[in-house]
Amino acid sequence: MRLDVQPWGATIGEVVEAARAAESAGAGVAWTPELHRSAPVVAAAIAAGTSTIGVGTGIALAFARSAMLTALTAADLDELSGGRFRLGLGTGVSRLNQDWHGVEFAKPVARMRDSVAIIRAVEAGGDPIVHEGVRSIAVRGWRRPYPAARPRIPIYLAAVGPAMLRLTAQIADGWLSHELCPPSTLRDQVRPVLGSRKIDIVASACCSVDADAGAARRRAANVVGFYASVRSYADMFAAAGFAEVTAMAGAALRAGRPADSLGDLIPDEMVDAYAVAGTPAECVARLKQYDGLADGIKLSPPSYGLDADEVRAAQHGLLELVGSHS
């Protein structure tokens, strides 16, 4: 199984340094998230600063940009990386699209299907480029005058619900999981829906490695605590037996505690259920549980509620784990 990374840095330069270290350690792909930075911009920096590691947006928001602009950005990034780019797309949630970005969110599955169709049409070239749907395009008299690095750029979709998973199985080259994706979720909920079509299945996990297993788990606890405080994840946690913990996390959030500071409410068994955390040997054993279920796993260092030096220490341990695996 391939080990990918989501490199962290207080500056874009530090992110690129972490990606270089991941490349040296033998990581497969460096993925760039989109929340506090622009995923394509950071992907461009990594592409320019590395030579062999894959580069992917993990994920870029599909609806906050026009599909044509997304296609052009992907083509530029594939050229810049020498054919190493993967376009990871996600819908985001309604509030993020409508309140943060001022774009429509209705019919997200159909909107994503149209987005990918338009991206593929722009990628293929030709004149005119026309697609009608929830998202439409009508371009005439335009051709991209630059040679493509590859005829087809891999598109990965982030999908949680069954409808988006079915769409991923139909049209995508790969699937990217949510940050909380234990092996049981892959086995029982994801793989049955994705079916037998061969796509690159990439799980995701917060990874905290330390010789002190307790310290490793405490670093990762704030990540789990953040999601435990979000109401939309309550059913998932309740099904795993953690309803009481989520109730406490939600109450603490409503009482004014920051969402990234709830790790003290999260028991070790809950951290173990949703993160790769512990000693190097414990983390290796946890990663083996994904064998046969995922083609790759995107590992990110814990950062919620931690100062920069703690995140750097966690990332160093993560990269040593990747190096020992390669």
Score class of each variant (00 low, 15 high):
S184N: 06
C181E: 09
G133H: 05
A228Q: 00
F63P: 05
E123V: 04
V230A: 15
I59E: 05
G58M: 06
P192M: 03
I153Q: 12
Y304N: 10
Q289R: 15
D127K: 06
W8D: 06
P280L: 10
R20C: 00
V284E: 13
S38Q: 14
A19S: 11
S300L: 09
S51Q: 11
A62V: 04
S136R: 10
A106P: 10
S51Y: 08
V202I: 09
A163R: 12
V276A: 09
V230D: 07
R120T: 00
A64N: 07
A313E: 13
F85K: 10
E17L: 12
A39N: 08
D260Y: 12
S184D: 12
G296R: 14
Q98M: 08
V276I: 15
V134S: 04
L157T: 03
A275Q: 08
G292F: 09
T70P: 04
V193H: 03
M164T: 06
G161F: 05
A21D: 12
V311G: 07
P7N: 03
R257Y: 02
A22P: 10
D114S: 11
A314S: 15
A285I: 08
H325F: 09
D127V: 05
A228M: 03
F105W: 13
L253T: 07
L165S: 04
D212K: 07
